[in-house]
Design a protein around this nucleic acid. Structure first.
Lengths: 205, 205
DNA sequence: CCTGTTCTTGACCGATTGGTCAAAAAGAAC
DNA sequence: GTTCTTTTTGACCAATCGGTCAAGAACAGG
């Protein structure tokens, strides 16, 4: 309904079911490709019942996007300016890759939104995200200048961490097809990416 | 119509218009999110007129996917086992990045298909693509063993080249938002990625 | 010009879309 | 059990979906 924090247990449960179903459907088909009937079926509810909890398809999507932006920013927030540069960045890579492994649907939902031109997320990208990235980029640049990190463009470094880690979630079908059976892409990715970024970031290579 | 190679000029032109419009719409909204009316409008045709050239929405998509798979494989095909290892791989990176710059819609169409689980492309991924990748991975492994290239997992190297180059096309909105105005992501990406892969691939680093 | 083919279109179809509504069912409080 | 609120649902709506069709318009070749 319209009460912001769901009160009864049944409200909490159904709201959560709907968001989970929405995540499933939106992440696979995008906003326009997803249907309320599909989401309702996935959530185990009738369509009117679903619309009792969320006023519209868009409302479900907006709620998901809000949550998503927070989850998405979290790993970068934890990058500690006081820690060891290489170790901190490697830990960030690991956190991001863990998110790809544990929340592939969230990663795909995000990818879908960006692919469509981020119509419902552009403000957050240019606001919160840009601010956070600029802040952390300054930290990285400082490390680089102090010789504690290889010389590297901080913004593009962050972008390449996103690209490499998210790719393993978003393109997992392709990766599995190319690697063939008997591979665990995520496990292989972790050691591969740690090696890659160690080589890339360690100063005086 | 049903004749495979379009004969008249008007057929060629309209077919091309439709495919171009389909690329535009499918790459932004995915298969289910795209509508025939949208594609028809984009192509400057009426809907029945569009269906005079293609029997169905799916037929347009299939045609686009066939073309896409070829364009997508081409840059990797050109990787020459006889050339200099690092130079060959850097050239591959540049080719892939050029594709991201020159054909961003194709890249997004591909990303959309994979995100949705590659329902109309899985066979090609497990067939042509896997064969080609395995072949080139063998070449790379040979280079690595001969000490002409840094030790690296060939499959994941190829995957990371895909991830890094395609990201600049698929996530351009986010990248522009994060970099802010006054940046040319693609130009910056080229020098950044060349530096990155030089460092990564040059032996005895 | 005429004739046959190619191309284009308006009207239309059943199915599905996002969403409404009134009324019934299920809980909760007493 | 009665009453009040919360939850659920079947029936329904206008708009849009992918696709059909018959008839007309434009274009050939002669």
């Amino acid at each position: 309904m319209n009460l912001q924090p769901p009160r009864t247990r049944i409200q909490r449960k159904n709201t959560e079911n709907i968001l989970n179903a929405g995540l499933e459907v939106f992440s696979r088909h995008g906003f326009r490709g997803a249907t309320l009937d599909q989401i309702a079926a996935e959530a185990g509810l009738s369509k009117p019942n679903l619309l009792y909890y969320f006023p519209s398809k868009e409302a479900i999507h907006v709620t998901l996007m809000d949550r998503l932006m927070q989850t998405w920013l979290d790993p970068l927030r934890k990058l500690d300016a006081g820690g060891d540069p290489v170790a901190e960045l490697l830990a960030y890579v690991r956190r991001k890759l863990q998110m790809s492994r544990d929340f592939p649907r969230e990663s795909k939902l995000f990818a879908n939104e960006i692919l469509q031109g981020a119509p419902r997320m552009l403000a957050a990208l240019e606001g919160d995200l840009k601010r956070l990235v600029d802040e952390k980029a300054t930290v990285i640049a400082g490390w680089s200048r102090a010789g504690r990190l290889a010389r590297i463009d901080p913004h593009h470094l962050i972008i390449s961490i996103w690209a490499l880690t998210q790719h393993y979630a978003d393109f997992d079908v392709q990766i599995r097809a190319v690697l063939g059976p008997g591979h665990d892409p995520m496990t292989e990715a972790e050691s591969y990416l740690v090696t890659l970024f160690t080589k890339l970031l360690t100063p005086e290579g």
